[in-house]
Amino acid sequence: MLKIGCHLSISKGFKAIGNEALKIHANTFQFFTRNPRGSKAKEIDPNDTEALRMLMKENQFARILAHAPYTLNPCSPEEKTREFAIQVMADDLVRMEYLPNNLYNFHPGSHGGQGAEVGIHQIIVQLNTLLKPEQTTTVLLETMAGKGTEVGRTFEELRQILDGVILSERIGVCMDTCHINDAGYDIINDLDGVLDSFDKIIGLERLYAIHLNDSLNSKGSHKDRHAKIGEGSIGLKAITQIINHPKLRHLPFFLETPNDISGYAQEIALLRDAYKE
């Protein structure tokens, strides 16, 4: 069965978002833990999270994916920004335990001219400060497009971070199809080669989720502009190969395309038709 969902807002509560996912025939979803451009987080209602857990169990949902706010930058040159990143992620990981055994994704950040090595070290320090043996959440580094001074534009940079994390069983990777296309990986003509490279450098066992997005830009553009499925440079044929690939098809896929809820419903229907059971 295809495990697919999209990005939904938790403003109405967790059970409501679960019901919204069901209405569009999704069996997982992604959500922001708090305001994506700020720091404010909605108070957790334990009864609401328990209701979502029951809904997910009854409907055989895949693991859901929480996304950290874009303002989180653990490798900023500014100490205040790095401290903010620690505070936000620490709070998010506590909150995630109301929905145990799920996934938490974040952008590794931008080093702001310090250099990738310095940025990678700062990310490792934050993760080693925050990750705890008792947590059930798996934290994911997102593959990035490489615009500006982003860290995580190559598999090698992500590998360096993973190598520095002490609790390796609590850390993994979320692959974004738009991002790796824009970073220069040829997922259109050489998906097998890209996955072989990922496996050699990182290990496919560290890949927990995929952001399934088309791209408005060509391979290697380093732009990071998402497009609707089949309406960008990656195209429906390549995306169909991704969801059906024997090394990927078991993973949960999360749409982050520029859509409203009806648009997401259409994309999910399109991809379910393209998935080979």
Rank of each mutant, 00 (worst) to 15 (best):
M1W: 00
L2Q: 09
K3V: 01
C6Q: 08
S9E: 03
K12R: 11
K12F: 08
G13N: 10
F14A: 02
F14R: 01
A21S: 11
L22I: 09
A26G: 11
A26P: 06
T28F: 07
T28C: 13
F29K: 07
Q30N: 09
F31Y: 06
F32I: 10
P36F: 03
S39L: 09
K40Q: 14
A41L: 07
A41M: 13
K42S: 09
D45A: 15
E50I: 08
L52Y: 10
K57W: 08
E58N: 11
E58M: 09
R63E: 10
T71A: 06
L72G: 02
S76E: 03
S76Y: 02
S76F: 02
E78Q: 12
E79W: 09
T81I: 09
T81Y: 02
E83S: 14
E83I: 14
I86C: 14
I86M: 14
M89I: 13
V94Q: 14
Y98K: 00
P100L: 15
N101F: 12
N105H: 12
G112H: 05
A116C: 14
I123C: 15
I124K: 12
V125Q: 14
V125K: 15
T129L: 15
P133D: 08
V139H: 14
L141V: 12
M144F: 15
M144R: 14
M144P: 10
A145R: 15
G146R: 06
G148A: 08
E156P: 09
E156W: 10
E156M: 10
D163R: 09
G164H: 04
S168R: 15
V173I: 13
V173R: 03
C174F: 03
T177W: 01
C178M: 03
N181S: 10
G184N: 02
I187H: 02
I188P: 00
I188H: 03
I188C: 05
N189E: 09
L191T: 03
G193Y: 07
V194F: 00
D196G: 05
D196I: 09
E205I: 08
Y208K: 05
Y208Q: 03
N213R: 06
S215D: 02
L216G: 02
L216Q: 06
N217P: 01
N217D: 06
N217A: 05
K219Q: 13
I229N: 03
L236V: 03
L236T: 01
I239N: 00
T240V: 05
T240L: 03
N244M: 12
H245M: 06
P246F: 02
L248M: 06
R249M: 11
E256A: 15
T257N: 01
D260V: 08
S262F: 03
I268A: 00
A269Y: 11
L271E: 00
R272W: 02
D273A: 08
A274G: 01
